[in-house]
Amino acid sequence: MIDWTGVFPAVTTKMRQDGSVDIDATQAGVERLVSSGVSGLVMLPMLGENASLTDAERERVLRCAVEAVAGRVPVLSGLAAITTDDAAAKARSMKSWGAEGFMAFPSLGYRTDRRETVEWYRSLAAATNLPIMIYNNPIAYGVDVDPVALEQLAGIPEIVCIKEESGDVRRVTDIFNALGDRFVVFCGVDDQILESVALGASGWVSGMTNAWPTECVKLFDLCRQGRFEEARPLYRILTPAFHLDTSVKLVQYIKMAEHVACGAPEWTRAPRLPLVGDERSSVIATLEKTVEALAGLN
């Protein structure tokens, strides 16, 4: 049984410079997260380069995470596909590899309308008996699982949670007003976590937690306890780095944050390329300033 509260980082898949998957570094990252107090893990999110991996690589990554976690926290898997049949097949495979639930994307190949979106998630729920977190990111994927769609999914017990990343923090309140406590609401964008928890979100799927897990868990806990005066200074320090989570290059930026914070590999798989030039310098400057400010706060 998953306790749907706390920080569930969207975990990066570590790569070598040649683009091959680095299982040892991935397991080291998982251990660092769990040891820092996160409440769960989301393996194979888009931040984990899900769409760039083969099925064999996805299996290795998910199994290595389950092995490293050893039952200490739940392990969810990103579930991303183009067709309904492929998504259902992936769900069954990922369950056999150790996934305890899914963070399910809309179809990656087609912008479904509301009727099609509802049917998509109904079909995924029917594929296994594992719980599902809907990943709602209309900015990136052009599909909005709004309160009207959620009302049509409310009778499906496998659909438990929504990762809310519409970009409008008011949506948290709209969901509660429309559906009460039927769905657990997770914040899905790092630079809205304080606001989202203040409005009732009980969890956080976070990218930058990969870089600063202890600080992000502390921030979340302060917010959940209503200790906003204590949370604000930490939030203000982290927010410039959190803004990097909203870029199309969030994979490169967050891996660079891990590299700056703890020496983890920065490498990604093509077509993503390493940061260069002024962009690289600017991102590193933001991250190094964050490291310095955190040291001063501590």
Rank of each mutant, 00 (worst) to 15 (best):
V30Y: 11
T54E: 08
I254E: 09
E151T: 08
G48L: 03
R114Y: 03
R16S: 13
R122M: 08
E57G: 09
E158C: 11
E230V: 12
Y235N: 03
A87R: 10
A198V: 14
G167F: 04
T13L: 06
G226Q: 06
K95F: 02
R170P: 05
I156T: 11
L79S: 04
P157N: 14
G78R: 12
R122S: 09
A140G: 07
A65H: 08
D191I: 05
R60A: 12
P213A: 02
L76W: 05
S247Q: 15
R72K: 05
D245W: 03
V38E: 05
L297Q: 15
A257L: 11
L234T: 01
A68W: 00
S123F: 06
M1F: 09
Q17V: 13
N177T: 07
A285K: 15
R224W: 08
G142N: 08
A70I: 01
V11G: 11
C187R: 09
S77W: 04
C187N: 15
Y135M: 00
I134Y: 02
W4A: 06
Y253P: 05
K289C: 06
D174C: 08
K90V: 07
C223R: 01
H259E: 06
A51I: 15
V197L: 07
F183V: 03
P147K: 03
V38P: 06
L273P: 00
E279D: 15
M103C: 09
V189H: 04
T112G: 00
D221F: 08
I134L: 13
E57C: 07
R92M: 10
E67H: 11
F186H: 01
V69R: 00
G277T: 10
A241R: 01
P74Y: 00
E100V: 10
G296F: 07
R182V: 01
Q27H: 01
A125C: 13
S93P: 03
A88W: 10
G167D: 02
E49L: 02
E57A: 05
I254K: 01
A28T: 13
P45C: 12
P233I: 04
S39C: 04
E31Y: 12
I132K: 12
G226S: 06
I193S: 01
T239Q: 14
G200T: 09
G296C: 12
V251E: 07
T12A: 15
R280P: 03
T5H: 09
V217Q: 13
S202W: 13
E258T: 08
A241M: 06
T214P: 06
M46F: 10
V30W: 13
A201R: 03
A56Q: 10
G48T: 07
P74V: 00
E151Y: 06
A70K: 08
E230S: 14
G78Y: 10
